[in-house]
């Protein structure tokens, strides 16, 4: 079972038009930027993208939006992308906004083999419309379904050839959750090592969830809000 592929283009080779994709990352932090570039090159269209954010105009998922490759976006916060807002208001793009914890938990449920979860987020709001509500101990909860995604595309810091993944700092975010949730999971990493070189105690995502892995050739790691303090 060889999980190592040569690069992003090979990793995403069989993603068809109309596929449902999960893309890891929070803002531009920990996004699979090599695979996104390959999806733009491939020109695959009518995608449904599940991701916390929609990138910015010229980076991340914003690149797919600009080429009109996205049919539907499922996200929690999309405030940093003018092209996104334009396509949404003009009706070109279908958008489902869901609470961030619900997004995370619907990934978790998929990876844990559970069809649905109950969460209080969104009770009494428009998020609750059309959803089953149930009371537990006097408090209302919404039934939220596990996601079904054809492909999960994540970015990790390190991997071994077995597909075991290690994430770094807040670039972890949704990546391990989506890695568990895809029918086929693709991981792009900064460092790929032979099996045996990762400490098994330090692995965040067991390789059983990961089908394809490669070392990315280009990580720009763009910073969205550069905030600093002066040295005294």
């Amino acid at each position: 079972m060889n999980k190592v592929v040569n690069g992003a283009d090979e990793a995403i080779r069989d993603i068809p038009d109309g596929a449902t994709l999960m893309l890891g990352g929070f803002g531009l932090c920990g996004i699979p930027e090599n695979c996104i570039a390959a999806l733009v090159r491939k020109g695959v269209r009518q995608l449904t993208c599940i991701s916390n954010n929609a990138g910015v105009d010229d980076f991340g998922i914003g690149l797919l939006l600009k080429q009109k490759q996205v049919k539907k976006m499922i996200a929690s916060y999309v405030g940093e992308n003018a092209e996104f807002e334009r396509q949404l208001l003009s009706g070109e793009l279908e958008v489902e906004l869901i609470p961030q914890g619900t997004l995370a938990t619907r990934c978790l449920a998929a990876g844990y083999g559970m069809p649905a979860v109950f969460t209080p987020a969104g009770v009494g709001t428009e998020v609750a419309e059309g959803k089953e509500t149930r009371q537990f101990n006097g408090k209302a909860y919404l039934l939220e379904m596990a996601f079904e995604a054809d492909f999960a595309i994540v970015k990790a810091w390190k991997a071994d050839t077995e597909g075991n993944l290690v994430f770094r700092e807040t670039a972890r975010n949704f990546n391990p959750l989506m890695a568990m949730a895809g029918k086929i999971t693709i991981a792009e990493v900064e460092e790929l090592v032979p099996a045996g070189e990762l400490n098994p105690d330090h692995v965040h995502t067991p390789g059983i969830y990961v089908h394809r892995v490669f070392r990315g050739t280009s990580f720009e790691k763009r910073i969205e809000q550069r905030t600093v303090r002066k040295k005294a």
Binding site: G27, L28, C29, A171, I223, V228, K230, K231
Partner: peptide
């Protein structure tokens, strides 16, 4: 976004793109 124990902004030149808060600030 996945951190307990958030510190102040980094010193200039020490920004880490993997380390941001929920407002996407370094």
């Amino acid at each position: 976004n996945g951190l307990l124990g958030m510190g102040p902004f980094p010193f200039e030149g020490e920004e880490d793109p993997d380390l941001i808060n929920a407002g996407k600030q370094t």
